[in-house]
Design a protein around this nucleic acid. Structure first.
Lengths: 240, 240
DNA sequence: GGGATGCTTCGGTGAAACCCGAAGCTTTCA
DNA sequence: TGAAAGCTTCGGGTTTCACCGAAGCATCCC
């Protein structure tokens, strides 16, 4: 009973439209200011301040002060995973009730974005599909495995590094249900490694002011060479 | 924004102490009546009725009518996983704030219980530890792997069966953070298989009226032979 | 220093919802 | 058929809380 009170406390913090919108905005792993978060929730700064205080008091977000700005971000990967699991139920049920309606403003987000620390959207799903087709990864229910040949490929690409620890069992990754594509994409250590590699190589660039990612010309080449992904490059050409 | 509203709807359904208590009670995978759920939340039947209607309308629970009883259970494994992820945050933070206080009524639950479809509590953690120590499974972050020798052992024990599908990669399991032990235990396909095997072999028995499991004399032998687990059997001998 | 920006605190208002008593409906049992 | 059990609906009392206007700090820029 004492623990279920705490469960309710956490869930209630998420269970308010403005706060849920803020948390969803933070799901790409970036740190946002209070004013930016007020914008995504379409509320005033005062109201947002109260909401952020509450989110912080239950430990869902952390704040970093920088000058006159206060940057808010999700407190941990566990928090991101929790919100992701709520999104999964929210998306799945709405799928069976009403056709998913998407405004044109969402197209960029659907195309490529980050999901806390890994790639999501059509790009993330395409990469995952390509890795599965080539036998590099296999998804089994709610887990994903990297095969020995897949590990070699990731190391050759410079995405994963030859670990110092003598692991007898291959490193794993985690699947994550994409809320826009309703398909699995890669999360976990491998997903994060691919994402940071793509950012470091300038294959993708953050579109300022949004959560969307932009695929650079170098990325079109890089994603094709590394993973054999073509379609996403074609899709991005038609982006309005 | 439309999706974040739905996220808030789901989370708000969990974010109320009485409803959270009901959902936590359903986390062992059983179906409970409205009166039983009113009891665990310490509210009247009318109030519980309203709460259950709300939980059903957002798709978190399903109801099955049987005579004059209505049996409520979690709608899906996804819902159980979502609640589990909230519990994880709820437990983790309270750990760093206040010493975990447990009433004597909780000792049975801490000892052995089911967590939706797998074993939890000290028993679940002990089995997991034993499997890790023997090299049968390895836990890597938020994933768990069953080794080839581990698979053979599980098949020899009759817990896993020789699958018809030609899997080139070994079946995986999923770790689940135990809220009472603050340790990992096995969930996923392997966790569910161990649990159903233990129930089928009468190694454990549901204690009527509670979520706790009772380890039978056959279970003391079975768990030792199968996994090399000793301590739990010793602990159960001192249970008041 | 003066003004602007970012953010928080305070106060009051309005709506949402949690709660239970009472009553009604359905099923079971004697 | 009558009584009891399980559950739901209705009505109203109370609390919670989300929201914004106004005001107050802190920081940055000119």
């Amino acid at each position: 009973m004492a623990t279920s009170n705490r469960i309710a406390e956490i869930a209630a913090a998420v269970g308010e439209p403005a706060r849920a919108a803020m948390l969803a905005a933070l799901m790409d792993g970036r740190a946002l200011t209070a004013t930016e978060l007020a914008g995504v929730a379409t509320i005033t700064a005062q109201t947002a301040s109260g909401h952020l205080a509450r989110l912080g008091s239950v430990g869902l977000i952390t704040v970093e002060k920088q000058g006159r700005h206060r940057y808010h971000s999700l407190a941990s990967a566990e928090v991101a995973r929790m919100i992701e699991s709520v999104m999964q139920i929210a998306g799945g049920v709405s799928l069976s009730r009403s056709p998913p309606r998407v405004g044109p403003r969402d197209t960029d987000l659907r195309h490529a974005r980050t999901c806390y620390d890994h790639l999501a959207g059509a790009l993330g799903v395409s990469i995952t599909d390509a890795l599965r087709a080539s036998g590099a990864v296999e998804i089994q229910g709610d887990a994903a495995l990297l095969s020995a040949s897949g590990l070699e490929r990731m190391q050759a690409l410079g995405i994963l590094h030859h670990g110092g620890e003598p692991r007898s069992i291959r490193p794993v990754c985690r699947p994550c249900l994409d809320w826009s594509e309703r398909r699995m994409h890669l999360a976990g250590a491998l997903g994060a490694a691919i994402c940071s590699h793509a950012l470091a190589q300038a294959w993708v660039r953050r579109r300022p002011g949004t959560r969307a990612l932009e695929i650079t010309p170098a990325g079109r080449i890089g994603f094709r060479r590394a993973f054999g992904v073509e379609e996403v490059a074609a899709t991005v050409a038609f982006r309005p």
